[in-house]
């Protein structure tokens, strides 16, 4: 869809408060749109239900990271202490599981934390160098006290007029078309 040689990214609407944003998200979802997102300075309680989001898969990524840390630590220590560089320490057995507990625990936590942090950024497709939403001057409020919702042009049902009307009916205080480039 093109207007004045500009690609439309979507339509952005601003609402007054978290309650109105949640209600609007519910309306948008019920109208059948799927390519939309809401923007707020903090996570809003109950928004996941309004938007119909599924559980984040991050837990599985962290489990993977944690298992690598757990198995890696044990393998390293058993190999070093038992085979590669055996040391007789006070006559204790070479492969001695209780003494492996602290380092195994630490490395499990370390790798899980890396998986949680970088997994989260990867799921959120961050870092991202540019976002068409930043073309909208008003959107600066999204990190301050603004509550926005954007239906993207990639949605199959997307058409400028009905979308704008949907937002006005839902009580938006400002509706604006977002273009891919300025």
């Amino acid at each position: 869809m093109k207007t004045e040689n500009k690609n439309i990214h979507g339509i952005l609407a601003e609402f007054r408060n978290p309650k109105e944003l949640v209600d609007a998200a519910e309306t948008v979802k019920e109208s059948g749109y799927s390519e939309f997102d809401t923007y707020a300075p903090f996570p809003i309680h109950g928004m996941e239900k309004a938007m119909g989001l599924k559980e984040s898969p991050l837990g599985w990524i962290v489990l993977g990271g944690g298992l690598i840390g757990f198995i890696g630590a044990l393998t390293l220590m058993i190999w070093v202490m038992g085979y590669e560089y055996p040391m007789n320490i006070s006559g204790k057995p070479l492969i001695n599981f209780p003494i492996y507990v602290p380092i195994t625990f630490e490395l499990t936590v370390l790798l899980s934390a890396f998986a949680a942090t970088f997994g989260m950024f990867a799921l959120n497709k961050l870092p991202r160098l540019h976002n068409p939403l930043f073309n909208v001057e008003r959107f600066k409020k999204a990190s301050d006290d603004g509550f926005f919702i954007c239906i993207e042009a990639s949605d199959d049902l997307f058409e400028e007029k009905p979308v704008s009307k949907l937002f006005s009916d839902a009580g938006a205080i400002h509706v604006e078309t977002v273009y891919d480039s300025e």
Partner: peptide
């Protein structure tokens, strides 16, 4: 800021990550 927009789809993963990190840091 890595291009953070405050998108709720991002917050949703973010909150999960924050909770997992808190859960990891507690025994740590």
């Amino acid at each position: 800021a890595l291009g953070w927009t405050g998108s709720f789809r991002n917050w949703w993963n973010y909150e999960k990550a924050y909770m997992i990190l808190a859960g990891l840091a507690t025994p740590l």
